[in-house]
Amino acid sequence: MPLPFIVAWMPGSRKRVPPRPAHLPAGATDFRSRLAGVVSIAWVATGASLAHADRLAGATLAQQGGGGVPACMACHGAKGEGQAAAGFPRLAGQGQAYLLKQLQAFADGTRKNPQMAPIARSLSAAQMRDAADYYASLPGWRQAGAPHTPSAQYAQGLKIATEGDWTKEMPACFACHGIAGDGVPPHFPALAGQPMAYTQTQLNAWRRAQRTNDPLGLMQAVAEKMSDAEIAAVSRYLENPSRPGEEK
């Protein structure tokens, strides 16, 4: 039996490691947190993280915060729907592996953001998993009313999202992000329903090499080919994209 598997089955490892209990001496806490690290690596290594993260603990963290961590919903909305005006992203329904990866990226600096970085750094590995599991379990985006009223900008956004522009080697967004931007887990996040400001910020971050956590540099290769107008058009379109067959 591989070592990680044995460690994962040690007593207590199925539960998320509780916050540091006050009565324990520093050394004991150290051991516990080290154990937590080993256990979480073991979980990831065995792929068990998907099955057993504590969704309830995630819900509590999202709604109340805890241990110095602010409630996620303060920014990401009561149901994880995000806040369009502030450009805070929707988390509800996003892939579990993807959310977890982003929290790790904020913590290790391959994705930079002054609001999320300190929060991510204060989360334990177990808390990250719990939060990711909780948000992934919430219902994803549903088309809100009719798609935008037709305009030149809308048409441009639609074209970029569904066809790309091969004269400059730019694939369609949906070639990787799935039909209507629904996402293709585990590597390709859903884009549909994200606030325009958020999508714009991400594309610009890649363009300026401020976000560097994408596999094979796939997303950077797309963003660096885009103009400001194209970024605006596609970001607006993705707030409420149409489904295939709804156009024309």
Binding site: A175, C176, G178, I179, D182, V184, H187, P215, L216
Partner: peptide
């Protein structure tokens, strides 16, 4: 990453994305 470790592509909702 896209075509799958087994080369069988990635299907979503009955259609192959990859």
């Amino acid at each position: 990453l896209c075509h799958g470790a087994d080369g069988q592509g990635t299907e979503m909702g009955g259609r192959y994305v990859f």
